[in-house]
Design a protein around this nucleic acid. Structure first.
Length: 585
RNA sequence: GCCAGCGUAGCUCAGAGGUAGAGCAGCGGUUUCGUAAACCGCUGGCCGAAGGUUCGACUCCUUUCGCUGGCUCCA
C-alpha cells in the first residue's frame, strides 16, 4: 500500500506554468542583450524559475535590472506563446547553433518534438505556457550563479539566473518580505548576535566553537536526549575519535567514502584515521562476546563527534561543517525484530519533533538502488518492514524509488520549520553490509549463527545542524527550557542591587539560569538589552518591590505581569521549563 | 573543487592612487532612572594575507586564505 502525500492543486499547477513562461521571457531578454547566447534549460522551480545560459561574459548584478526592464517590455507587448510540433530533424535544423538544445533533442525518445515561439525567441519546450507574455503578473530576478550543464562537474559551467514569479504583486511582495524574514533569522547572524558559537579562519573553516550560551543549549538538549534514550531502552556508549586504517579498510569506508575522510596520521608507524562515522566502534563493542538471540535487540547510543571532509564551497554556518556531533545510535537486532525497532525509532523521532515544536514534516521511504549489497529477498523484506512500520504509525509518506543507500533501505524525515522550509531531520537506515563485513552475528534459537541486522539512526541529525535549524525555527527566541539565560533581574537603581541579588540566589537555587543586570544604565536600556538577547523573563525590582517584597515581571513578548512574590515567579519559570512549552514568547 | 560576488575597528557600514571615518559596542566619568537606547569624554585599524606596478597602494594587477550565492554532495 503506497501512501503518497500530495498532488499539486490546480492553482499551483497554473502558477508553475506561469513561472516557466517567465523563464522564457527572461531568455528572450537575455537573447536581446547577448545575441550569441547558447541556451541551457529553464524550468519552473519552487516560487520561481531559472534559466541557464552560456554567455560571452560573466553577468553582473547590474545586468539583472537591465534584463528586468527588458522583460517588462516584453510583457507589456503581450506577445503570444505559439506552440509548434516538428520532427527531430527539423528541430535540429532550427537549433543548429544551439549545442545544448541539440543534445536535449538527442535525448528525447519521441519522434516529434515541440517548440514554443514568443517574440524573437524560439525554444525547444514541452510546454505548456500561458497564452501570452502579458499574463505574467509579478516577477523579480534574484541572483546569478554558476551551474554545470546537466549538473555534471565535467561539463561546462553555465550562468544561471534565478527569479521568482507570483500570481499577483501582493504575493510577490509577501514573498520578498519572507526572504527578508529568512535573512533576519539566519542562524549565522543570530549566532553572532546571541553569542552562541563562532567559526575561525585561524582554526579552520567548518570547525565550530561553542560559546557558553550555545553550549548550554546543547547541553540541555543532550541531557534530555540521553534521558529519553535511557527510557526507551538504549545504552549509552563512548568510542574513540580515531581508529587504525585497517578498520576502515574492513568496513569498506576507505574504498567508498575516502573523499570524505581526512588523511591518515602516523602513530608509532601505524596509520590512524579520524572517524567520519560512529558505527564501527559500536560494532566492535557488539562483537566483544558471543551474542544470543535472547539479548537482542541491543541499542547503542552515542553523541558521537565525527569529522568529514567537505568541499570548501559547500560549508555553511552550522548546517554544513567539517566536524560535528551526531546523535547517533545503532540497533543490533534479529531480522524479525526490525519492524518493531523501526516503529520504536519512529515513535522517538516524532516525540523529539513535537518537543521542539516541529508540527509538520515529510517522510520519505527510499528503496533499493541499482548497486546494492545483500540479497534481493533481504531488501524486499526489509523495505516491506519499513513500510509496515510507517503504516502502523499511520504516517503518510512518499517513496523515493532507488533512493536508498547501497547497504540498505532507509526512511528520511524532513522537518518543516516556522517559515515553511524543509530541514533534514531523523534518518533510519537499515544496513546489511557492515554486519556482513565484520561478521557480526548472534546465536539463534536453532543454535546456529545468524548475521545480525544493524540499523543506523539519528533523530536530531547532528547537534550543529539541529541547532542551526532550531535557531531559525525559533528566530533565536528559544523556549524557556532552552534559553541560555532564563531570567534577567533588572534593578531600577543601584540601591536595589542587594534585593536583586537575593532574587538571583533564590532562582539559582532552583537551577534557573538567572543573571542580574547590575550596570549603571536606565531601566529602558536594560530592558532593551534583555529584549535583544531574547531572554524570556525580565524581573524588575525597584522601591515598590522592595517595600512589598515582590517582583514585577515583563515577558519577552512585551507583556507586563502584576507584581508578585518571588515564589510565584519561580514557579512560573519552573513550570515553563518542565513543560518545555513556551510560556513567555 | 568549480562559476560569480565580497573581505575597511568587536558589530553594521562610509571612503578612496597622496597615507582612514561614522554609529553601535568597549573603557572612564557624571547620572540612580519604572518596562526597547541617559549625558560627556576616551580608546580602538598592518583596510584578510603575500607578491607586483607606482615617487607613493587600503585603492590598480597577480597569487593566496576566508566568507556569500549557486552547481555537486550531505548529518
Amino acid at each position: 500500500m503506497a501512501v503518497s502525500r500530495e498532488q499539486k492543486t490546480q492553482a499551483e499547477a497554473e502558477i508553475d506554468i506561469m513561472r516557466h513562461s517567465t523563464a522564457h521571457v527572461m531568455a528572450e531578454a537575455v537573447q536581446s542583450v547577448f545575441p550569441e547566447v547558447k541556451f541551457g534549460i529553464g524550468p519552473a522551480i519552487e516560487n520561481g524559475f531559472y534559466y541557464d545560459f552560456d554567455l560571452p561574459r560573466a553577468l553582473t548584478p547590474a545586468d539583472l535590472s537591465v534584463l528586468e526592464t527588458r522583460m517588462a517590455e516584453i510583457m507589456a507587448a503581450d506577445l503570444p506563446f505559439v506552440r509548434q510540433e516538428m520532427t527531430k530533424e527539423e528541430a535540429r535544423g532550427l537549433f543548429a547553433a544551439q549545442p545544448y538544445k541539440l543534445e536535449l533533442i538527442d535525448g528525447i525518445p519521441e519522434a516529434r518534438v515541440s517548440i514554443y515561439r514568443q517574440g524573437a525567441l524560439v525554444d525547444l519546450c514541452q510546454g505548456p505556457h500561458v497564452s501570452s507574455t502579458g499574463k505574467i503578473k509579478a516577477f523579480k530576478l534574484l541572483s546569478i550563479a554558476g551551474a554545470y550543464w546537466r549538473g555534471d562537474e565535467h561539463h561546462p559551467m553555465l550562468q544561471r539566473i534565478y527569479g521568482i514569479a507570483f500570481g499577483s504583486k501582493e504575493a510577490l511582495s509577501q514573498h520578498l518580505k519572507m526572504l527578508e524574514e529568512i535573512s533576519w533569522r539566519d542562524h549565522r547572524k543570530l549566532g553572532v548576535e546571541l553569542g552562541l558559537f563562532s567559526i575561525h579562519e585561524e582554526a579552520g573553516p567548518g570547525l565550530v566553537h561553542w560559546h557558553p550560551k550555545g553550549a548550554i543549549i546543547r547541553q540541555v538538549i543532550e541531557d534530555f536526549w540521553k534521558d529519553e534514550h535511557f527510557k526507551r531502552g538504549y545504552d549509552i556508549v563512548y568510542t574513540p575519535h580515531v581508529a587504525k586504517a585497517g578498520l576502515w579498510q574492513t568496513s569498506g569506508h576507505l574504498d567508498f567514502y575516502q573523499e570524505n575522510m581526512y588523511s591518515p596520521m602516523d602513530v608509532d608507524g601505524q596509520e590512524y584515521i579520524i572517524k567520519p562515522m560512529n558505527c564501527l566502534g559500536h560494532i566492535l563493542i557488539y562483537k566483544t562476546k558471543l551474542r544470543s538471540y535472547r539479548e537482542l535487540p541491543l541499542r547503542y547510543a552515542e553523541m558521537g563527534t565525527v569529522y568529514r571532509y567537505e568541499r570548501s564551497g559547500v560549508l555553511h554556518g552550522l548546517s554544513r561543517v567539517r566536524g560535528f556531533t551526531q546523535d547517533d545510535a545503532h540497533i543490533f537486532c534479529r531480522f524479525d525484530q526490525l519492524e518493531e525497532e523501526v516503529v520504536g525509532v519512529l515513535n522517538l523521532a516524532r516525540f523529539m519533533m513535537e518537543t521542539f515544536d516541529f508540527t509538520s514534516y515529510r517522510i520519505f521511504l527510499s528503496t533499493r538502488p541499482e548497486k546494492f549489497a545483500g540479497s534481493d529477498e533481504m531488501w524486499e523484506e526489509a523495505t516491506e518492514m519499513l513500510r509496515r512500520a510507517l503504516v502502523r504509525q499511520k504516517i503518510l509518506y512518499d517513496v523515493d524509488p532507488g533512493g536508498g543507500v547501497f547497504y540498505g533501505p532507509k526512511i528520511d524525515i524532513k522537518l518543516e520549520d516556522a517559515l515553511g522550509r524543509m530541514w533534514q531531520g531523523p534518518t533510519i537506515q537499515v544496513d546489511f553490509n557492515l554486519p556482513h563485513r565484520f561478521d557480526a552475528s548472534y546465536v539463534g534459537e536453532d543454535s546456529r549463527e545468524h548475521q545480525v541486522v544493524m540499523v543506523h539512526r539519528t533523530v536530531l541529525g547532528s547537534m550543529e545542524r539541529f541547532l542551526a535549524c532550531l535557531i531559525e525555527h525559533y528566530a533565536g527566541a528559544f523556549p524557556v527550557w532552552l534559553a541560555p539565560v532564563q531570567v534577567v533581574v533588572i534593578p531600577v537603581a543601584d540601591r536595589h542591587l542587594d534585593y536583586a541579588r537575593k532574587l538571583e540566589v533564590e532562582l539559582r537555587s532552583e537551577r534557573i539560569r538567572v543573571k542580574v543586570n547590575a550596570r549603571s544604565e536606565s531601566v529602558n536600556s536594560k530592558i532593551r538589552q534583555a529584549q535583544l538577547e531574547k531572554v524570556p523573563y525580565m524581573a524588575l525590582v525597584g522601591d515598590k518591590e522592595v517595600a512589598a517584597s515582590t517582583v514585577s515581571v515583563r515577558l519577552r513578548r512585551g507583556e507586563q505581569l502584576a507584581a508578585q512574590p518571588f515564589g510565584s515567579l519561580k514557579e512560573m519559570v519552573k513550570t515553563a521549563i518542565a513543560n518545555k512549552a513556551e510560556g513567555a514568547y
